[in-house]
């Protein structure tokens, strides 16, 4: 594979225009029950999520299960239909100047379960060439062979094998090749390395870094492993119960987590120091059910600093005084919020 075989869609807005902008994205899943199958409740999976990804940037999304990170990913490529909100790819809004098919030419996804996402009855070559064929690209099989070679799978050895004949790491390489065969500009990686053994994970991370540099890719990298996200990302977005609570450049958030939830999430990381092990858990209990999330700030039920205003009013994202690029949704940082410690941040 050489750069000339990589034929992404044309950059229309120039480097200053974000590659992807998401505004107020919302998705509720109905919970049906009873004899008539009526909707009895709604899982508020994604609620008012907005962010932008610059060209060539890698945005990491972290959060616990049920926080809506995977649903967000699926909404981005139209695998799940959004209830409300805007998806703008390089200046073109989805549904207006951009069709779903065009979007999928430019945005591809790699999933966690490398086995479930490959058709067991299709050879590796057929799987990798499939998308390119659907999009009507020229010589899909030749393209697939080149891409397989590029991700480290010798096409002569692997082209005619089936998914069950490959190891987990090899299958994930197939998935990456399949995504890249379309020459996308944005790749959404949803826990793409989480199921791999640590030693294999490092190989795949190296591959992803190389491909990003070679083809000028933009990544959205979803993971629960903060170390992996730090390693690969430029900025990190933290989600809690369907909402964005913090978004910041990696170095800034690593230095100081502004949101109390982010801070807990970071302190929950194993210490890696046998002489200085973690002594108290940062949070008690499990995350609440997204079917009926708490009112106001959704984190207030587990937050040490919660006051009355947190139960009543939903905080909105705003830049920190020390760094406007570091945004947090917490009343502690808004001097007009009415929180007793408003404007002071997390007490020392």
């Amino acid at each position: 594979m050489s750069v000339t075989d990589y034929t992404p869609t044309i950059d229309t807005g120039g480097p200053a225009q974000p590659l992807l902008t998401v505004n107020h994205l919302r998705k509720y899943f109905p919970v049906r029950g009873g004899i008539l199958g009526r909707t009895q409740a709604q899982v508020q999976a994604v609620d008012g999520v907005s962010f932008a990804v610059a060209k060539g940037e890698t945005l990491g999304i972290v959060g616990e299960s049920g926080c809506g990170k995977s649903t967000t990913a699926k909404l981005l490529i139209g695998l799940t239909e959004k209830d409300a909100g805007e998806i703008i790819f390089d200046g073109h809004a989805l549904g207006e100047r951009l069709s779903l098919k065009d979007l999928r030419r430019s945005v591809q996804m790699v999933f966690q379960d490398s086995y479930a996402t490959l058709n067991p009855r299709m050879t590796i070559l057929a799987s990798v060439a499939f998308g390119a064929r659907v999009q009507g690209l020229e010589d899909p099989e030749g393209l697939a062979r080149k891409m397989m070679d590029r991700v480290g799978l010798d096409p002569n050895r692997f082209a005619h094998r089936y998914p069950h004949e490959l190891s987990g790491g090899q299958r994930q390489r197939v998935n990456i090749a399949r995504a890249l065969a379309m020459s996308p500009r944005l790749v959404v990686l949803d826990e793409a390395v989480s199921a791999l053994d640590k030693s294999v994970e490092a190989q795949v991370l190296n591959l992803l870094s190389d491909l990003r540099a070679e083809f000028g890719l933009t990544y959205i990298f979803i993971s629960h492993d903060l170390n992996v996200v730090r390693y690969i990302s430029d900025r990190i977005l933290v989600m809690y119960l369907g909402e964005v609570v913090e978004i910041a450049p990696v170095d800034s958030i690593w230095q100081e987590q502004a949101h109390p939830y982010t801070r807990s999430l970071f302190s929950a990381m194993p210490s890696m120091d046998p002489d200085n092990r973690t002594q108290t858990p940062p949070l008690a209990g499990d995350p609440p059910n997204p079917i009926d999330p708490p009112k106001g700030c959704r984190f207030h039920t587990r937050c040490r600093f919660a006051s009355d205003v947190c139960k009543a009013k939903t905080p909105s994202l705003a830049g920190l005084a020390r760094n406007q690029a570091h945004q947090v949704a917490c009343h502690l940082y808004d001097s007009t919020s009415g929180h007793p410690q408003a404007g002071q941040g997390i007490p020392a």
Binding site: S167, G169, Q170, D197, K198, S199, V200, E201, A202, Q203, L205, N206, S209, N227, V228, R230, Y231, I232, V250, M272
Partner: peptide, 24 residues
Amino acid sequence: QGLLAANLHDVARGARLNAIPGAP
């Protein structure tokens, strides 16, 4: 040693990882 390196605990951002090649 390889496992410890693959933990990414204090690897510099973007640095090339010292991955163990191959598979078990």
